[in-house]
Design a protein around this nucleic acid. Sequence first.
DNA 1: TATGTAAGTGTTCAATATACACTTTATAGC
DNA 2: GCTATAAAGTGTATATTGAACACTTACATA
Lengths: 241, 241
Amino acid sequence: MAKFYKEYDKHLVALDCIIFGFDEGELKLLLLKRKFEPAKGEWSLMGGFLKSDESLDEGARRVLHQLTGLSDIYMEQLHVFGELNRDPGERTISIAFYALIKVDENDRKLAETHGAHWVSVNQIPQLIFDHNQMVDKALRTLRSRTERKPIGFELLPEKFTLPQLQSLYEAINQEQLDKRNFRKRILETGLLEKLDEKEKGASKKGAYYYMFNKEKYLMYAEMGFHFQMKVKKSPLIKITT
Amino acid sequence: MAKFYKEYDKHLVALDCIIFGFDEGELKLLLLKRKFEPAKGEWSLMGGFLKSDESLDEGARRVLHQLTGLSDIYMEQLHVFGELNRDPGERTISIAFYALIKVDENDRKLAETHGAHWVSVNQIPQLIFDHNQMVDKALRTLRSRTERKPIGFELLPEKFTLPQLQSLYEAINQEQLDKRNFRKRILETGLLEKLDEKEKGASKKGAYYYMFNKEKYLMYAEMGFHFQMKVKKSPLIKITT
DNA sequence: TATGTAAGTGTTCAATATACACTTTATAGC
DNA sequence: GCTATAAAGTGTATATTGAACACTTACATA
């Protein structure tokens, strides 16, 4: 291939992956301790450098796989971070990707053997470079996404209960929702199909399992929809002086 | 500065600018004929290469200024395009930015002397590489943006009339809105301040000028809001066979 | 001064969102 | 096996918001 652009600067391009999972009623983030200098040993997102023979998506998937063993994760672009001194090692621009995944036992082990850890988004430690800023942006994007697209398919197991789904929404948006209104709204979208089976163990009564209707889910994910509810009024707390 | 990342590939990073303006009741896009190989002479977005000593935003502004003379334009990141063969010249990843601007006489001349042209978004020619795809994405982003953020500040002159504002919304979303409902909704946001002055010339009666309340505008731009209206029912068209 | 053209204005009805509390179910402990 | 407990499940009345719809006003120009 002829080279037309000889005279222009070339740049290191990093790919950083922000992976959210939902576990134990909490929204979690996958982090690891950086294995090379600079900032070796500090908490970091999964990151690596783009190669010349791979597209951005391929690169991001490769980086994630190398660092955690996770494969077949669909990630979306979040933002490009390109301040001059964001990486003290060398001028690097970083393309941040994010994904939502359901964490199964297998993934959990894979991640662990690679030294990755799931951390609650409420307890994110200090990360290297501008990675905290990236996580911030990803969280804000994720929150606004819940209002415009269905969510859950990527974060919950195939069968899940309505209380689980509600607690997912509550964990992402950090707010309490009214049970009746939540059910009514989510059911009337037609996204969910009720199964004839109950979850046992989590409660005495047991909650019915549901599944997503895949076609409807994809349709809404494509076209967008609207899902916003007022936060449940918290019971008044009397402040005594 | 110590170099830690010697062994990694480096890449050409392009910055492409998608500039929307509103003029004569139409949403327009700024294009120019590419001045260098490959694809010299074909229609293109304003693009150039990132330099090592500038941030992404700085680079995008520089490119836009060099190619059109426009300055002080605030652009937002749209997306990164990084398919392997998107640029036949050489492997290049491109960060696309977009902006909305109000086109004044001065800008118009500046752009013209630089060989740039304002083209209606309804008549976009074939562009080089993946630039049509970039414009597509920018348009979709712009449309969804009208539902979540106030718009107009960047596209209209300081003083504008309600019919102008409505026609901006209609041009962006390519739909007709009901005059009374539009006015009611936009006025009750508190975003607008009515002036004691009428626009003359555009109509016999003349429409009152309004300005944006800058604080409210910034507040809503930051927090987001909701502005969505059903499209006006088009009068029935009888199809005779 | 008559005519034409776009600006401006309110109300009714329908749909949707919110607030709110008791009943049901099954387990586990006695 | 009876009882206590803890979470799941369910419906309605009211308030709010959104949509549909047509005539009057102001001014310029002929």
